[in-house]
């Protein structure tokens, strides 16, 4: 125990209840990166990297191929390439949504129910929100692998008419950034719910992403939906994200939002939004969802602290 005494003497000068702004920022960044690494390890450590890569990309790739083949069958092999592009982009990008929405909520559930570490994370000097965002980012990276491979296969195997010279890069980059922020915000709302609920909430992210899949124009345009469903779609940032990305990648692609008889057309007075218009709508809805997510999370965290939920294992 002599070593303990020596170590303790050296260390004791470093525990400090106060920190400078610079130290705080450094700690937040370090905590975020470590949480991301933790998320990646807990996500991918169960097998070797090759198997994990296959696991991560197979689901979105085969889901997309299934949709494309169904369209081919239904259309008698005459589905226009632009519509195939529509479906491939929507389905491929959905990997981000599934991973991002589930990532934060499952981080809460994993750490509370499975690893029993949520309370230790909560009472560490880092903000739990930062750690959850890091965990969520790790899962988003997994989703990104699936999305990139799916889109790549769409171009190479399915012959999507992608012209690099015609891509609107600024809109694409801005749309991706805003879209990912909005996905994380939605994930944060679900994490707030998971913090309050029982272990059954493992299924909530799937249910929510499944419901959103129907109303945001992922694989079919909004104008085939009832008006109230279109209204829900128009207030979702995911709808505008998909639209903006499609517009940036394929300028001539059909709109998933507008079209004859659509709610958008009746409200806006023109047939379909431009790329910039979609981007602005994405910005607006993302800001609203993000603010709502942060407020919801803070409320949930306070309530969990008030009710002592951080170390309660529901085990239902």
């Amino acid at each position: 125990m002599t070593a303990l005494a020596e170590a303790g003497t050296r260390w004791s000068r470093q525990a400090d209840p106060e920190s400078t702004r610079r130290q705080s920022i450094a700690q937040v960044w370090r905590g975020f990166l470590t949480a991301t690494r933790l998320g990646w390890q807990t996500e991918a450590n169960w097998t070797n990297p090759v198997v994990y890569f296959l696991y991560a990309v197979c689901t979105p790739v085969f889901a997309t191929l299934m949709l494309v083949f169904m369209i081919q069958v239904i259309s008698g092999g005459n589905a226009p390439p632009a519509y195939r592009a529509y479906v491939v982009i929507g389905s491929g990008l959905w990997s981000f949504v599934v991973a991002g929405i589930a990532g934060l909520a499952w981080a809460v559930l994993d750490d509370r129910e499975r690893y029993r570490m949520l309370k230790y994370l909560f009472v560490s000097p880092n903000d739990l929100l930062v750690l959850l965002l890091g965990r969520g980012l790790a899962r988003m990276m997994v989703g990104a692998m699936g999305a990139i491979v799916t889109l790549g296969l769409g171009v190479v195997v399915l012959g999507l008419p992608l012209d690099l010279a015609r891509i609107d890069w600024p809109v694409l980059v801005a749309a991706m950034v805003l879209g990912l922020v909005s996905i994380v915000a939605l994930g944060l709302i679900l994490a707030s719910v998971a913090m309050q609920t029982r272990q059954d909430s493992w299924h909530y992210p799937e249910a929510v992403s499944g419901a959103l899949f129907l109303i945001v124009g992922a694989v079919f345009p909004l104008n085939i939906l009832p008006t109230f469903a279109q209204a829900f779609g128009l207030i979702s940032p995911l709808t505008w994200w998909l639209e903006a990305v499609r517009r940036a990648l394929f300028p001539d692609i059909q709109s998933g939002i507008g079209g004859a008889g659509s709610l958008y057309a009746s409200l806006a007075g023109h047939d379909a939004p431009s790329g910039i218009e979609a981007l602005l709508a994405l910005l607006l809805t993302t800001v609203v969802v993000t603010l709502a997510a942060v407020a919801t999370y803070r409320w949930s965290e306070h309530r969990a602290k008030e009710r002592g939920l951080f170390d309660v294992t529901t085990g239902s």
Binding site: Q27, G31, T34, S124, P125, L131
Partner: peptide
């Protein structure tokens, strides 16, 4: 790994 991870959460 687990200990190192917490060392980072503790700001070391």
């Amino acid at each position: 790994e687990q200990l190192w991870m917490f060392s980072q959460f503790y700001g070391l």
